[in-house]
Amino acid sequence: MIDEILTIILDGAIYASWLFIVALGLTFVFGVLKILNIAHGGIYALGAYSTATLVPIFYSLGMPDQLVILTMLVSALAVAIVITPIMERGILRRFYGQDEVLIVLVTYAIYLVLEDVQKLIWGMNSLYVYEPRELLGALQFGSLYYVGYDLALIGLAIFCGLLLWLFLNKTKSGKIVLAVIHNPEISGCMGVNINKVYLAAFFVGAFLAALAGSFTAPLISVQVGISVAVVIESFAVVIIGGLGSIPGAVIGALIIGMARAACVHKLPEAEIFIMYFCMAGMLIFRPKGLFQGTQARKI
């Protein structure tokens, strides 16, 4: 009984951590650029693919095993560096200030393109990079064994969340970003280079997506279609938590992670749609999510 509860909590936490890293990028980009980026899932997949490509190269060079983490970081960074100018500068910039729903469509189009780009570059075969997962050994909780790497994901999620939160609230640049989130026009008038902030914010978002993909790669078989589920799941998280809210993303990820883990163990039939259920429920009772106030319209 206790084991079961512990399993649900740990499984849920691991799942939530992964979800949180993806959703953090999504919600941050929405907060700053007011773009709900469907292509976020595509960037996630690119991160996974690039890790699946670079890690075998790394091993073939015969470097110390621990440095593989660095390789994974680099592969995520590489994806963000390549994708950000193309997406933000090249495409999205044209649509700033337009209808949010229209911009969602644009990102949907980019998502479609990224899907096929993955097929064109990596083909239809599955790639496996299980080696990094063996790096940290296994841990025992009572009668349960957990892979150390999986638990480390929880740490990574906490680290990413805290880092972004501290940056936003404790540094000068972070406060500038907050000002832009609050009112881009006035910030612009006060001399903030809005375009730069947007570019940087998009880069951070893309990096987080790629990072999540990169660190998930050892857990899954990297293949066509891994981004589809991510899109919807991370959407559900940010909708539950409130668009643009970091604490919201934490709570959203935890709700979905735990609900899903509980379903896997107790009610497997419901596993697939439990998160949509959470999302629909939240939208019905608190349409703007947990962490977003309502805005009154002035007449």
């Binding site: 919807i232 668009l243 949509y276 349409p287």
Partner: peptide, 27 residues
């Protein structure tokens, strides 16, 4: 239920409905 929502929230809630149905149908 849906008519109270606008913009992205309408879009997302309608999406949630379709995905709940998807989840049910495949089961």
């Amino acid at each position: 239920l849906l008519a109270r929502y606008r913009d992205i929230f309408f879009a997302m809630l309608s999406l949630a409905f379709s995905m709940v149905l998807y989840g049910i149908l495949i089961k």
